[in-house]
Simulated scan of single mutants.
Amino acid sequence: MRRHDTDVTSLVFGLIFVGIVGLWALIASDTMGLPDLTVLGPALLVVAGFIGLAATLGTSSRQRARAAAVSQAQPGPAQPAQPAQPAHPDEPTLIDELAPDSTPAKDVEPPSDPQEGKSSTS
């Protein structure tokens, strides 16, 4: 079974949810009152944030180590990607569709500027 990466967002929101349920349980059982919540609520968010930061740093260090191992295993340069070939010889490729028309343009006079003939005397 392949080990998957940690989803940090899900981890942090799960910790916040569990913390809120825990605070609710403490208030419902009269173990603590609402004034205590003004201290423990922000403390819960700070702890969840620190755990999220630690998980992010741990994940990024594992990814760097994995990338270093892969680069050592593949000593040669990467091969360039081959352009897509059409399935049928008569079928145009994307480059053919986007290329400008190769027929020469007809000689057309550019439109005259309506302000060109007027003199500015103001």
Rank of each mutant, 00 (worst) to 15 (best):
F13S: 13
D113A: 04
T103V: 02
F50P: 01
G33A: 09
P111H: 10
L15W: 04
Q82F: 05
S120K: 14
S29N: 12
F50R: 07
A43Q: 01
H88K: 12
T9H: 12
P77V: 14
V18R: 14
S60P: 00
Q74F: 09
V8T: 14
L37G: 00
D101P: 06
G19P: 02
P80W: 03
P83K: 06
Q63N: 13
K118D: 06
G22V: 06
P89R: 06
V21A: 15
S119Y: 11
D30Q: 12
E97Q: 00
Q79V: 03
Q72M: 11
V18T: 09
L34F: 09
D30E: 13
E116M: 03
G22I: 01
M1Q: 13
K106D: 10
A68H: 06
I20V: 15
A69P: 03
V70C: 02
P92K: 07
L94T: 05
Q72V: 05
A105T: 13
P92R: 07
A84D: 08
P86L: 09
D5C: 07
P104W: 05
G33M: 02
D90K: 05
V8G: 06
L15T: 04
L45D: 00
P42G: 07
V12I: 12
L94R: 12
E109F: 05
V18Y: 10
L44Y: 00
A78H: 08
T59F: 06
Q82D: 06
P110T: 05
R3C: 04
P114A: 12
V70Y: 07
D90P: 00
A65D: 13
T38L: 12
D107H: 11
P77G: 14
E116N: 03
Q79N: 01
